[in-house]
Amino acid sequence: MDVLRRNNVTVTGRPGGPPVVFAHGFGCDQLMWRHVAPAFEADHRVVLFDHVGAGGSDLAAYDPVRHSSLDGYAADVLEVLEALDLPPAVFVGHSVSAMIGVLAAAERPERFAHLVLVGPSPRYVDDTGYRGGFSREEIDELLATMDDNYLGWSAHVAPMIMGVPERPELGRELTDSFCRTDPAIARRFARTTFLSDNRADLPRVRTPALVLQSREDVIAPPEVGRYVHEHLAGSEMVVLDTTGHCPNLSAPEQVVAAVADYLAA
């Protein structure tokens, strides 16, 4: 199997530069990084990819068993790194990809130079002595909402917004699939994402890490970011002056600056 095609891998930037790998989170695809990744192209080899089931990935490669846990996605990442034969990389993971990066770095530390975790959460569901921000009932409600949107999502996939008037910067073909996961896969990915518990994996990581946290984030609240920071030995944390779960879109210049500062230090 062609791993690079499977994950719709694109490599840009300076050939031979130190590699930076950007991994998108639950919901969207590599376009999430469109305001962040270009800033690194001058000095770095920039690797972008889509998780299987998202964006331009090969949907046929989706394996309900392998991808029923984040380890399956981590294994995909390691296979991509292996296929590219990169020196130890900076891995920038957003949302659930933060934990996918944690799992991959715990498994194969030699492949990673730094981790940058944007809006990470090791467990979304509250637990005894731990506040993840959601109750199990709330997550069940999410999964029900996704069911309700089954038709709406299908419609999203179909070309229903032909008459879109303006798309500054982007041709329509580029954004066609953005945030439009196959609904069945999206539902499973939601289950995998929001029911996983990777707290025990944090202490396994030896790779230096930077935690990037929005000031307000209902998906991964600041206290969860702090939890990750405190349980990752030798990590640093930067709180971004923005709200929402996607600072890479809402405050890309802050994300770029924080990552660049961290890598320069």
Binding site: G25, F26, G27, C28, L31, M32, R34, S95, F134, E138, I139, E141, L142, L143, A144, T145, M146, N149, V164, E166, R167, P168, L170, T175, F178, C179, A190, F194, D217, V218, I219, G244, H245, C246, L249, S250
Partner: peptide, 20 residues
């Protein structure tokens, strides 16, 4: 509601920011 909130944060807000 919670489901909508997560849907917004993970899908709709990014979609809106990219596709406008």
């Amino acid at each position: 509601t919670v489901g909508g909130r997560i849907f917004w944060e993970t899908h709709l807000a990014p979609l809106l920011l990219v596709e406008r």
